[in-house]
Design a protein around this nucleic acid. Structure first.
Length: 345
DNA sequence: CCCGTAAA
DNA sequence: TTTACGGGG
């Protein structure tokens, strides 16, 4: 998922969660929903769902994560993907093939009674449906959290919101937003400060880190265009394989040596790229954006949330009200700060 | 993801 | 007090 390996070339700066207080961040909604579907599961590895069969894993995740962030005065704006580009559709096809295989393996594991295997494989079968997207938007709106529609890529629209100073940064695990032109990226935005390592029961502590695009470009002495070209060599969502045997270090070396992707291809025999380079460049550098949006952080509508989650989706009311009441305290102080800022200009 | 509880 | 784990829906 996305460009991930730039950390081998440039390290982010650790940042305390407190430094994000009163800040607005944009996130790629589908990415986050997908992560929740993969991680929030019952004991048997199945998704959480209500009595009617509506999946609730993602709603659980969105509720608690946003509540905790709002409590800290951190506001997320959720950007939903529009129609995928032609190139992205191929990647989506590839991913659905991975999921199909994972489902087969899941059936197999269940038949053998290998629950541990079933649970890990089940995570890879996650599919975001339109019903899940509708429910997510409904919950977010009741929580007073902005929902923004992107014409195509969510990360691209999110980056645009940073450019327009509507939000301070994009929060994401991959680096795509920097290619899309976001000046600031927050990685590892987690409240727990730790993350489970795959295929084991161990945890590592992780730091929230901040990347500034201009610092990255300065440190690597690259232009924005070269950063994109380098990423295409490594592999992006639009050419996931990149170039065989070329990782971040080699890609960087090649771009520094030759300047452009075309010159890398004509001078390095090992580099073969059977893709429409210009089309990928355009996605990152000249993408469509939606200027018709509003970013409006409103107070949490506790009644609205409970009506939806508890009446319609079977959530425990005490738990929901408790969570939201705590969140509102942090939110109140954030809104108070905002009005003070407005008053003093 | 978060919470509550049990165990260390 | 910290960590592990099951349950949540």
């Amino acid at each position: 998922m996305g460009v991930k390996k730039i950390s081998d070339l440039f390290k982010g700066t650790p940042i305390e969660l407190d430094q994000l207080r009163q800040k607005k961040l944009a996130v790629d909604a589908l990415n986050i929903i997908y992560q929740f579907l993969a991680s929030i599961r019952g004991y048997d590895g199945g998704l959480l769902s209500d009595s009617e069969g509506y999946v609730t894993s993602h709603l659980t995740g969105l509720l608690y994560r946003n509540a905790r962030l709002l409590e800290k005065g951190i506001q997320l704006a959720y950007v939903f993907d529009g129609a995928p580009s032609k190139l992205k559709r191929e990647e989506i096809k590839r991913r659905s093939e991975v999921k199909r295989k994972a489902r087969e393996e899941l059936d197999d594991a269940l038949e053998r009674g290998d629950m541990e295997r079933a649970r890990t494989v089940a995570q890879r079968t996650s599919v975001v449906t339109s019903s899940m997207i509708d429910d997510s938007k409904k919950l977010l709106k009741h929580m007073g959290i902005p929902v923004i529609e992107a014409p195509t890529e969510g990360e691209a629209q999110a980056a645009y919101l940073v450019q327009k100073k509507k939000v301070w940064a994009v929060a994401s695990q991959d680096y795509d937003s920097l290619l899309f032109g976001s000046s600031t990226l927050i990685r590892n935005l987690t409240l727990s400060g730790r993350r489970k390592l795959p295929k084991s029961n161990r945890y590592t502590t992780i730091n929230v880190e901040v990347f500034h695009q201009h610092e990255l470009l300065q440190a690597l002495e690259l232009t924005k265009e070269q950063l994109v070209d380098m990423s295409i060599l490594i592999g992006t969502d639009f050419n996931p394989d990149g170039v065989k045997g070329v990782g971040p270090k080699t890609a960087y070396k090649f771009i520094k040596k030759h300047g452009t992707l075309e010159d890398v291809i004509s001078n390095e025999e090992s580099v073969v790229l059977d893709i429409d380079i210009e089309a990928i460049r355009e996605i990152f550098l000249k993408h469509e954006i939606n200027d018709n949006y509003t970013i409006d952080f409103k107070p949490i509508d506790i009644e609205g949330v409970t009506e939806f989650l508890c009446e319609e989706r079977g959530f425990n009311k005490d738990r929901v009200v408790n969570t939201l009441t705590k969140a509102r305290k942090g939110q109140d102080s954030a809104l108070k700060q905002k009005s003070l800022d407005a008053f003093f200009g």
